[in-house]
Design a protein around this nucleic acid. Sequence first.
DNA 1: ATGTTAATTCAATAAAAGTTATTACGAGAA
DNA 2: TTCTCGTAATAACTTTTATTGAATTAACAT
Lengths: 108, 108
Amino acid sequence: MPETTSLPSTLIISGFHALSDPLRIQVIELLRDRELCVCDLCEAIGATQSKLSFHLKTLKEAQLVQTRQEGRWIYYRLNLSQMVVLEQYLAEYRRFSPILPTRTCREE
Amino acid sequence: MPETTSLPSTLIISGFHALSDPLRIQVIELLRDRELCVCDLCEAIGATQSKLSFHLKTLKEAQLVQTRQEGRWIYYRLNLSQMVVLEQYLAEYRRFSPILPTRTCREE
DNA sequence: ATGTTAATTCAATAAAAGTTATTACGAGAA
DNA sequence: TTCTCGTAATAACTTTTATTGAATTAACAT
């Protein structure tokens, strides 16, 4: 049987990468129930603005967050649909993985 | 309203980290429908043994894979339950995130 | 213009990944 | 047992990439 695994897009990989840092997870969780501007996030997290800016860029490039500008403020909000894309990617494994049969290396 | 976000465990963060590399994703996908020994994986991926060993260690520490030794072979298989843990973590966002209301920075 | 918000640039540092060589350990033969 | 071979992990070292802080720049409001 041939491999039916289609390699995930770089967007999925960069999504997982974006979620692999505690500070970025903190941002994501803060954005879970409302949008926040950068200064809110700085204060909530206690990080410098430039440090946060770097991580926000990572999250934005992974399309896990979106921004909205209002005057001088830039509001960040979750992009739930991209979170769902990652969730669905993982869900595929639950659908397809069988109870793994024992096998041995030689009998290919 | 206080934050109800409980920061995810390091296991979750290391799980996302483990999934943030193309070679490791390739391993995970190869293990989706059967277990494989290291030499199988080396051949399938075309990577050197030691390079692969490094990535397998990352996956194992994140508990995304488990191993079984049989003589000199070590068989790797998916640890589906940990995949589900990550999936469920992402699913929480879908459950809790409202349609985001517009807000402004001042009116805290 | 002046102050405020946030992104960017640059240089220094830290962490991750790759390469090569070595080590550990089990299997099987003498 | 003792030897070697095969499999896989580990170590040492190098290269690459990611992260950080400080300073600067850009955009906006008054």
